[in-house]
């Protein structure tokens, strides 16, 4: 029984059809990577899942089913109880999604109090505890910082901690490591893998870094020009797929001890 079933959706912005006939099924505690070049529509797909398409964008055909419920027919109230609780999202730069003029602690408290009726003090404590659980050093200092005072990697981990507060069943990650250094990227990737292992969270990660996608995923989806070009188990995509575009993409990934140009 799939946790999330995207059934042949089309997404349009105004009159232009951006994503065509896209189907992805995700089982509980699995990780799915969506790879493709910029403009291939990969971000649009996961934004559609969370109902966060930018203005003018809408799902014009197909259906998105989450735990036997169609996500396309939810009311605003139903969305509110689902988003951030059952389904969370991590953005490319978690610092940018937070209010720059508010303490991280304040944003965190607001987030917790949206989903749970507890006092501000308790919410603050819960937030700090969550940061600690995500192995961020010195949670109190982070709660008392502004987003711009933290490094990019740190902000990203705060974003993950926020997204994981209610142990969502499904985590959507939109290029979570693209803006980070390789060493920080390794930390974030490891942290996301641990979420799956410890909490059984299913993850859809959208990335253009095929190395990261391959390391994390059970299932890989290759997108091109708004269509799914190829999808399958990781081993199949990496080694056995006969799709010309997939082959080209995999071949282009620089690898240690691989092809040298000089």
């Amino acid at each position: 029984m799939a946790l999330l079933d995207i059934k042949g959706i089309d997404v349009s912005y105004g009159k232009s059809l951006t994503v065509k006939n896209c189907s992805i099924a995700l089982d509980p505690a699995k990780i799915c990577s969506v790879v493709g070049e910029s403009g291939s529509g990969k971000t649009t797909v996961i934004r559609a899942v969370l109902g966060l398409l930018p203005g003018g964008g809408s799902v014009t055909a197909g259906d998105i089913v989450y735990e036997n419920r169609s996500l396309l027919k939810l009311s605003k109230g139903e969305w509110r109880s689902l988003r951030g609780r059952d389904i969370s999202m991590i953005f490319q730069d978690s610092g940018a999604m937070m209010n720059q003029t508010r303490l991280i602690g304040k944003s965190f408290v607001e987030y917790i109090r949206t989903h749970e009726s507890i006092s501000k003090q308790d919410a603050w404590k819960k937030g700090a505890e969550m940061l600690g659980r995500m192995r961020l050093p010195d949670p109190d200092r982070i709660m008392n910082s502004y987003p711009f005072q933290l490094s990019g990697g740190m902000r990203q981990r705060v974003g993950i901690a926020m997204g994981m507060t209610y142990q969502p069943r499904l985590l959507l990650a939109d290029e979570p490591t693209s803006a980070l250094d390789v060493t920080t990227q390794a930390q974030i990737v490891r942290q996301m893998m641990e979420l799956r292992d410890e909490y059984g969270t299913s993850i859809i990660i959208v990335t253009h870094d095929i190395g990261v996608a391959a390391y994390m995923a059970d299932h890989v989806v290759v997108m091109k020009d708004g269509r799914i070009e190829d999808q399958g188990e990781r081993g199949y995509i990496l080694n056995d797929s006969t799709n010309a575009y997939t082959r080209k993409l995999i071949k282009a990934v620089p690898s240690l001890g691989g092809k040298r140009y000089v």
Binding site: P137, S151, G153, M154, V182, T183, T184, Q185, A186, Q187, V189, R190, D209, I210, G211, V212, A214, Y215, R234, L238, I250, V253, P254, S255, L256, G258
Partner: peptide, 24 residues
């Protein structure tokens, strides 16, 4: 070495647990 370990590529051993260097 740590930088080298943090490289993800398609020919790596996927069962290897990555050991990122701590902190910043």
């Amino acid at each position: 070495k740590a930088l080298l370990n943090a490289v993800f590529d398609t020919k790596m051993d996927f069962s290897r647990k990555i050991e990122p260097i701590k902190g910043e």
